[in-house]
């Protein structure tokens, strides 16, 4: 890996980050298999260079944006964020990335746009998991435009000062730290600005269990398990569980986005 220069950020937590080994060997990336160790085993085959992201829909400058070109016009920062998985575990990850807002502004968001839709690469010859019909590929995610423009929302291209490991969503992935991990879509090839709420993979798979918003919220349980607390990966056999915080602890920054919304309904 090449070292990546990045500025520190005021948004970083001072909690202790998980190790590189933990972060890169415990991944839900179903395109490479269902087991959390599968992505580390199989993602090596993924070709990430050249890479471009298609920006489409309600933008002034639609088209294919080569990754090198995207990276020339942005400021990379290190963002040490908490990551809370919907399954009840969490990590702290020192991402390197830039605010999604910068790229969206470069493409020029049209006033009619209300949502941003994302798609992951589908390349069956390099992604053994997409041969199974576990999800309706491509993996899709979405954000409301104000969520997408929020300074906490980043596109990450590295972690621990190095290029993004393939199993973590190389070469470019979304990170939305106040939402469950599955919202932070990996290996993005397409970003569309749209007028209506886009379909998202887990919501399509099980709408009763996975809502569009999927904000971390200890008061709104997953139908099959509690979200009140979490286990921090790598903290040892007897480390106490951690109380899960509203918006994964980013309440101060993002609560205003949901003023007037009932988070039990808009889960």
């Amino acid at each position: 890996f090449a070292r990546v220069e990045a500025r520190p950020s005021r948004f970083s937590t001072d909690e202790k980050p998980n190790t590189f080994e933990e972060i890169s060997n415990y991944n839900n990336f179903y395109e490479f298999g269902l087991d959390k160790a599968d992505p580390a085993r199989h993602a090596g085959a993924l070709t990430v260079d050249p890479w471009s992201v298609e920006i489409a829909g309600l933008v002034e400058r639609p088209g294919s944006y080569p990754l090198d070109d995207i990276l020339k016009s942005v400021t990379l920062e290190e963002r040490i964020y908490r990551l809370r998985c919907v399954e009840g575990w969490s990590m702290v990850v020192p991402w390197i990335g830039f605010e999604l807002r910068e790229l969206l502004e470069r493409a020029g968001v049209r006033p009619a746009a209300k949502f941003v839709a994302f798609e992951t690469l589908v390349r069956p010859e390099e992604m053994p998991g997409v041969r199974s019909r576990i999800l309706d590929w491509p993996y899709r995610e979405g954000l409301r435009l104000d969520e997408a423009m929020h300074p906490l929302t980043i596109l990450a291209t590295g972690l621990y000062g190095e290029e993004m490991p393939k199993q973590n969503g190389a070469p470019i992935r979304l990170v939305v730290p106040w939402k469950y991990g599955f919202k932070s879509i990996k290996s993005i090839v397409r970003i569309s600005l749209v007028e209506t709420m886009p379909a998202t993979s887990w919501n399509m798979q099980n709408p009763r269990e996975y809502g569009f918003y999927s904000n971390v919220n200890p008061a709104v349980d997953h139908p099959r398990w509690s979200q009140a607390s979490e286990r921090r990966i790598g903290s040892g056999f007897f480390a106490p569980r951690i109380e899960t915080r509203l918006f994964n602890g980013y309440e101060e920054e993002v609560a205003h986005l949901y003023a007037g919304q009932d988070l039990k309904v808009d889960f």
Binding site: D221, R224, W225, S226, A228, S229, R231, F237, F238, P240, R241
Partner: peptide
Amino acid sequence: ALDLQFRWAEIGADIAKRPY
């Protein structure tokens, strides 16, 4: 012991509310 760490409120709720 290791997963829910005797958090009885959560354990009780899980047993009563979670079908699995």
